[in-house]
Design a protein around this nucleic acid. Structure first.
Length: 485
DNA sequence: TCTGGGGTCCTAGGACCC
DNA sequence: TCTGGGGTCCTAGGACCC
């Protein structure tokens, strides 16, 4: 918690519905519901006029229609929402370099980095009112609710309190008197399940929560949430405003109007979804190692199955093949209402492409151990200074990337370095070579048609590494043979 | 013929390694 | 030849958010 109210939270009011009303004057002043319009749809956003009839986000569209039959039901125009969002984020970024978007319609702004004379309440209030005016201007009339406080937590609570189209600046020192009478569900992260657990422990308000010891909260809620709520109940929150948070997963899913029972149809859906995921990965210069299949059965039982590959992939064929394989282990005889494909364990491969620019056609399958999570990696061009075995390993990795692989006719996709972890991933015209290990460099050749070739491992300082070549390829590629899919 | 889609974070158990 | 403990990775599921 800061000494001054320098964290701002901005939330656009009934965002999707408001964009629709802005763009279609006949909808203004009338109930508008944006969301799934089919038999299994749910409400994403209801305009305030629709909320008056009891329509809420996440309610099934069926129920919304029952409560408010005369509303306009729209399926959403995400390009328009994205454009409006970008305009708003642009305004925010013109105020401070530290802007953390939470979604299309919400963001934190760090005012310590903004150009304000001081951070006293009157100054911050005038600034926030001007900001709201500029948001209205740049979006053609969309309204925003804004909270400003000494932490992210209280800024968000504050913007919620003045919805819609309001502003609340929490004066430093008044946080607890604001917070303690409120119900625990005002705390972000406290949903129905946590409310129920706390209720059984006799906790209703934040003040009740603050009376519990940390040990007891951890016992009731688990370590992470217990510790977090212990602090938040005392308005302790030091979380920084973090711009440019990187994506951790990419997924596509769909719920079908009628349960799908045909396995071939399921495989066709999964193959299409894998292609969508791959397209989005490639668009972001990303690839990932873990492929997840999500299945919701006819009775709403939700299952997930995942498989982690040796090397990251963004190939539609590879993702589809793994996802279809995961489906095979599942009993879907009763039919499924939802299928989804996702990729996580993302690595950023776009940083470096030493020897070629072709997108890979395929990727390694689950065949070997050794590639660890790619935390804290750096490009080979800008290595951290390392010592001892790590430095040797890195040198070997660079040697493999820069000399061994290209001499062998292999195009590297770049090296990725984190101390003690995997070293080089490379792409060959017909296969993959990749190195990994702890103190060793591993090379392997495999093709789309064959199972992986032999793995050869070298100590980092072994001169044989520089003499290594991929084995002669098994068989020439059949020109007419589709790879997969 | 209740119950979306895109995410994030956490937990718990087992494998594996040292 | 008996008994560990810690750390990391992977998997599955659940809570939660917008």
């Amino acid at each position: 918690m800061r000494a001054q109210a320098s964290v701002l939270h901005l939330d656009l009011d009934a965002f999707f519905a408001a964009v629709e009303q802005r763009d279609k004057p006949s909808l203004r002043g009338k109930p508008v519901v944006v969301g799934g319009v089919g038999g299994r749809g749910v409400v994403a956003t209801a305009s305030y006029e629709a909320r008056a009839f009891g329509v809420r986000s996440a309610m099934s569209t069926r129920e919304a229609r029952a409560r408010c039959p005369h509303a306009a039901y729209l399926s959403g125009r995400f390009e328009a929402y994205r454009a409006a969002s970008e305009a708003v984020m642009g305004v925010l970024r013109s105020c401070s370099p530290l802007v953390e978007p939470l979604s299309l319609d919400e963001a934190f702004v760090d005012l310590e980095q903004a150009d304000l004379a001081d951070l006293e309440v009157p100054t911050v209030t005038a600034f926030a009112e001007d900001l709201r005016r500029r948001v209205r201007e740049v979006t053609g009339g969309l309204t925003a609710s804004v909270g400003v406080a000494s932490s992210k937590f209280l800024a968000k609570v504050a913007s919620d309190l003045r919805k819609p189209d309001g502003l609340f600046v929490v004066a430093p020192g008044t946080e607890l008197e604001l917070l303690h009478p409120m119900h625990v569900k005002v705390i972000p992260g406290v949903g129905p399940a946590t409310v129920e657990r706390l209720r059984r422990a006799g906790v209703h308000t934040v003040a009740d929560l603050a009376r519990l010891g940390e040990d007891e909260l951890v016992r009731v809620l688990g370590r992470a949430q217990g510790q977090s709520l212990f602090r938040l109940a005392r308005a302790r929150d030091d979380r920084a405003v973090v711009p440019d948070r990187e994506a951790k997963s990419v997924s596509v899913e769909g719920t079908y109007e009628h349960d799908v029972t045909d396995r071939d149809q399921m495989e066709a859906i999964i193959t299409r979804q894998a292609a969508d995921v791959a397209r989005r990965l490639q668009g972001g210069g990303l690839s990932g190692r873990t492929v997840t299949l999500k299945v919701r059965l006819y009775d709403f039982t939700t299952l997930s199955r995942s498989s982690t590959l040796d090397a990251p992939t963004e190939s539609p064929a590879a993702i589809a093949r793994v996802a279809r394989g995961l489906l095979r282990d599942l009993d879907t005889s009763g039919g499924v209402r939802l299928l989804g494909v996702g990729v996580s364990g993302l690595a950023d491969w776009v940083q470096e492409d030493l020897f070629g620019t072709d997108a890979p056609e395929d990727a390694a399958e689950n065949t070997d151990k050794g590639a660890d999570e790619d935390t804290g990696h750096h490009s080979a061009d800008a290595p951290d200074s390392l010592e001892g075995p790590a430095a040797e390993q890195q040198a070997a990795a660079q040697q493999a990337a820069e000399h061994v692989l290209p001499e062998a006719g292999v195009r590297s996709r770049g090296t990725q370095w984190s101390p003690g972890l995997d070293v080089v991933h490379a792409e060959h015209g017909r296969g993959w070579v990749w190195g990994a290990g702890r103190g060793v460099v591993t090379v392997r050749f495999e093709t789309a048609q064959s199972s992986p070739g032999p793995v050869r491992s070298f100590r980092a300082d072994d001169p044989a590494l520089s003499r290594w070549r991929p084995p002669d390829s098994e068989e020439p590629q059949q020109p007419g043979r589709a790879r997969d899919q």
